[in-house]
Structures are given as C-alpha cells and as structure tokens.
Design a protein around this nucleic acid. Sequence first.
DNA 1: TTGTACGCGTTATCAC
DNA 2: GTGATAACGCGTACAA
Lengths: 360, 360
Amino acid sequence: MKRPTLKDVAKAASVSTAAVSYVLNGKHEKVSGETLERINNVIKSLNYVPDYSARSLVKNQSRLIGIVIPQTEKHAQLILENPWYSEIISGIEGKLRKYGYHLLLSGVNQGESYLDLLIQRNLDGAIIMGIYPEEFYEGLKKIKIPIVLIDSYINDSYFYRIGIDDEYGGYLATKYLIDRGHTNIGMITGAIRREGVVEKRFLGYKRAIRESNLFYNPDYVFEDSMSYDHGVAAGHRIASAFPEITAVFATADMIAFGLIKSFTDEGIRTPDDISVIGFDDVFMSRMFLPPLTTVRQDIKKKGVIAAERLLSLIGEAGDDDNGQSEDLRETILPLEIVERGTVIRRGNGQSLTETEHGRG
Amino acid sequence: MKRPTLKDVAKAASVSTAAVSYVLNGKHEKVSGETLERINNVIKSLNYVPDYSARSLVKNQSRLIGIVIPQTEKHAQLILENPWYSEIISGIEGKLRKYGYHLLLSGVNQGESYLDLLIQRNLDGAIIMGIYPEEFYEGLKKIKIPIVLIDSYINDSYFYRIGIDDEYGGYLATKYLIDRGHTNIGMITGAIRREGVVEKRFLGYKRAIRESNLFYNPDYVFEDSMSYDHGVAAGHRIASAFPEITAVFATADMIAFGLIKSFTDEGIRTPDDISVIGFDDVFMSRMFLPPLTTVRQDIKKKGVIAAERLLSLIGEAGDDDNGQSEDLRETILPLEIVERGTVIRRGNGQSLTETEHGRG
DNA sequence: TTGTACGCGTTATCAC
DNA sequence: GTGATAACGCGTACAA
C-alpha cells in the first residue's frame, strides 16, 4: 500500500477533495461539524500526511528556511567543527521547529551558485552567516525572499541584520587588558577582511591602544585564520620572537585555545606569564582549563533572534519577547566581558617601568 | 518580474516544454544540437532554476535527506552544542552536497510525530542518530525510504547501521587503565539504556574488570547524563567520597572535561592524582589542557560513511572507496586509544599493596 | 459543499 | 531522429 493522498481521503470519506483540504487548513467554517469529524477520522485511520511539495507548489511557500554557512578554503567539509556555528544553529533550529518550519542546512562551495539552493527549494527565507563577495549579496536581492544576515556589515537596507558591535568588542577586550597593566598586547586573528567582523574587532583593538597612548605595533598583529591551529602557530611565534608581549587578544575563542596550548608547551603559563582574552564565549570556554576569560556574545540567542526576525518577516510573528518595532533592520546584541581564569593584572602592583619588558 | 518557469523558457526559445525538460535532464539524445544550445542560452539569460517542489511531485524524489537528532529532556534546543553531533553532521553534509542532495536538519520533540517530517517532505532517505523507543522504529519501517541508523543496536535487518563496537571500546578504555596499574576504576556515564551505546560501553567496562579479577563495585558507576555538568558533579562526588578511586573512564569526552574541571577545583591533579580516559575523541579533546587520552572513533568518517551508504541505497553509488558489498547492513568502524596527557601509570613501579588506597 | 482549473515539471505517446 | 501534446502528481481555492 502506497502513501495515501488527499484524494484517497476524500474518497474514503465520501467527500470532495476541497472539503478535505479545508479541514486540513483549519477552515472549519467551510465544513459542517459532522463531515469535519468524519474526515478527521479517515485522515487518522489512513495515516494521511499532506505532501509539502504539492502544497509548496500552489501556495508558493515551503515552510523551509535555508541556512547558509561559508566554507573555508581549507575544508571541504562544513565549518561545523567550529562550535560557534553549532551553537547558533541550535538556537535557530529550536525556534523554527516551534513554528513548524524546517531547516535546510547547506554549505556553499565558494564560487558556486549558492543561490540556486534558495530558489530551487522555494525557501520561505534564509539566514546567512559569514561574509561573502559583493556579487553574492546582489544575487541575493534578486531572489525576493526575506533574508537575515548574521554578522554582516553589508550596508544595504534590503537585508535584515543581526550582529554585535564588533568594534566595541575589540575595544572592550583590549581595554580590559590595558586596564590590568598590560602595554604590549598582541592580537591574534583570522583574516582581516574589509567590512568583516574581524576588521571591526581589529579597529577596536587599535582604538583602545591609541586611546591609552600606547604604541601600536603592527608586528603584534598575527593574522591568519580563525582556527585553533593558527592560535598554536602564533603562540609559538610569540614565545620565540616577542617576549615583551604580556597579553594577547584572540579574536575567537578557538584561537585562544590554540594560543594557550602552545604557550603551555613552551613553558609559558597562562595567566601567570601571559594573559589571554578571547572572543565569543563558546560553550567550551568555560570548560577549558584554565577557564577562558573572553568577550561574551550570546551565540544561541543570536540564532534565536535571527529565527524570530525571519519568522516575523514571513508573517509568523515570531517575536516572543520584545515586539517593539524599533529599527528592525538591524539588531545589535550586547557584549560583555566574562572574567575567568586567563587574564591577570600585570606587575602585581610593582611597576615594571625599568625593564618594561619580559615575561621571563 | 517573477521567477521564470520552464514554460517561460519554452516560450522564449520557441520550443515545447518537453524539449526544455529534456535538456534539463541531460537527455541530449532527444534534442538536436542546435535547439540544445538555444535552450541553454535562454535558460541562462532568464536565470531559470527548476522548482524542486514540482520535480519532487512527479518524480517522487526530493533530493533531500533528513537527519534526525534526538532532544534530551532538558534542552529545548538541538543537542548541537555537543560537538559530537556537529562533527558528524559536518561529514554528512559534505558528502551529500557533493552529490547534489540537501540536508534537512531536525530535532525531534520526544513523543511527537517525528515521522511526519520524513513523509511530508518526500525525503529520499534519512539518517537517524541516537536511540528511540521501539515504536519509533516500527513507524520508520512503514515509511519505505532508505534509513541509516547511527549508533543504534536495533536488531532489525530492515535498517542499515553504522556504528562502532561500543562494548569493545568500553573494554579497551578500562583495560588500558588496568594495564597501567589502576584497580579502583570509576565509570562516569550518561543514562544506561537497554541496547544503547552506553550500556555496551558499560558492559565492556565490567568485562575488563572481571577479566582482570578486580572487584566490580557498582558504587563506582556514576550514571546520569552525557554532559559536561554531570562530569563536574561526579568529579566532586568522587573527590569527597571515593578517595580510593585512582582512575575513571568517562563514556564521553564531554564528561571527561567536566571531571577534570572539578578535580582541578578540588585540588586533585590530572593525571598525577587521578587518571581520566574519555570516549569519542571530539576535536576539542586534543585542544584540552591537559590533552585528553581517549578512545577515538572517527566521527566525521562515521558521517561520511553514513551518507555514502544512504546515497548508494538511493542509487547514487556514493561509495567512493570500498564498494565491496560485504554485509552492508552493518558497518562497524574501528576504535583506537589515543594516548595523550590524562592517564598515568599508577604507583610508578612501587607497589601500593599496603595502603591500597589513597590519591592523597 | 463540490467541481475543477491551476501551480510546475516530467514523460509517455504520437506526429512530422 | 526531433520535438510537440497532454496527462499526471498533489493539494488549494475560486466559481458554482
């Protein structure tokens, strides 16, 4: 026995397909109480489940939300091994499911036709993370579905954006180190791309340094990829070539983990010999040893809010909490420093002005 | 201007819809070279993208693979914050995308109609992780789509299974500790459910202990949830109530992290005072400090293989490597111990028979 | 309440 | 050998 269709239900209940459809869509005013019940019984006994493809075809909505994740150059796989993505997806999925939407997860091979996915599947909306070339966004606009951008600084009122104040975050982290007596502060980061989150954090870093009349030394900026491995590599370089650095700002917690690992291997203790502050507060950060001091953003909430925004755009009123419509185009989530165990006040009261250098 | 349809293309190219369809589906033998080119040009210029809903309707295949993740009781959100899931999904997604399939990600609220998802969306197949009540599997069988179960011990030849030998893994871990002189070995674990992976690991633990003529003490088994928090809680209990325990086997790396954390807080050093071995080797394990000794399973590969198996069931010949059809119903991936920094030989040569106890 | 045209793409049938 | 016609798959919603 194959899957029953609406037609089968209609036949079994001796009614028209229209009647069944009405019942399915809750248009009870179109159906008498008796037939309603009869149809419902048949649906149950036949185990009928409507076909979303057919529905999507006629209603032009699929109850499907796409979520697009960038690929790094290096990995063919999804970037999901970055816990940051896992957490945010977790938030998105939970919210969407509550409203009867499903989640289509897809990475994009760069240079590929990312957009076809959104069209082919008749997606009702999409959440896009990461940063892409300009044309990508131009293409997105042509498909006219609601789109929420996460962590994008694209200045285009067409899109809805959820993000944080990355510049401020970078400032916050760096200032935090400065306030604790550090003057030679390194920054370890992924690729600094124009208008990307990393660039903003970098800007914040520089602002804090300048504002405190410290010397900005470009050599202290270690730019490569947003990865643990980069953290490891940078840590070794700092250990061997920059002994004067007493604190580092890692623009992602994953990088911080790598840093601390290589410092440890080099016999440099965190935070006793060198302080480290991260960014993100992925859930592993509190589990790390020592627990990572970091700039916290509420990642899961970011996902939830992105989903809510999308739902309300689609007309599902997904906004549970606020609902006040300020400028919905852009939502900036708060940031805060979580003080844990990887930053220490330098010099411990005694001025280091004489030597000015040296972790040793 | 709205989205162009196949009909639009046909009109613009002055051909029938059939011709366009042929081109789309690579049935070039049905179309002359000239029209082929013309149609292709129109497709490009119109930016035509076929609608999968319509296609799904007629072909009864959606190029959509479902992936079902269980929810724990505690979390409303996806369990994605467990890196284990992230990694395996990463593997699955990469493989599927390569073959033009998309991934539908969904958690299941327990007791809910998980199955509707699979039917509604006309999924071509599904990958199911975790363990569910019996009825669930019965329901699955009624939908007649290929299904790959990950880490399930359901004994039903209807399903295809990918897993590891959990019993052996538990044995391996415990034996490893025993071989290093430990005799009082705790086991910290998530819920031990009948025929679940955890039960198997538990069985392995007991076998190793008995085989070595050690005393199996049920008090040494701390069962709760597969979580970091449980590790923390268990660690504190061990510290305060079971000083004689010198080594613990955590049935998941996440638990191990929690254990080590609470040990550290209690002033108990790992591995100097107590040894810890984990299970899984999630990517964080090598990053942890100290790096976690653990039973490694190749998580991402598990995902890749699950995807391959599914693809080949669907008829996409997803098996890149082997292809030899042994008993494809069940694939057991290898396990190995990764020696890192959290297990130490006990007693360091000197016999402890006198005291027999004490991490002191 | 029902009949039915419609949405979009596929494919079997048939014609040139 | 090419390619057009039309029925079909499933559910929706308007006209009757």
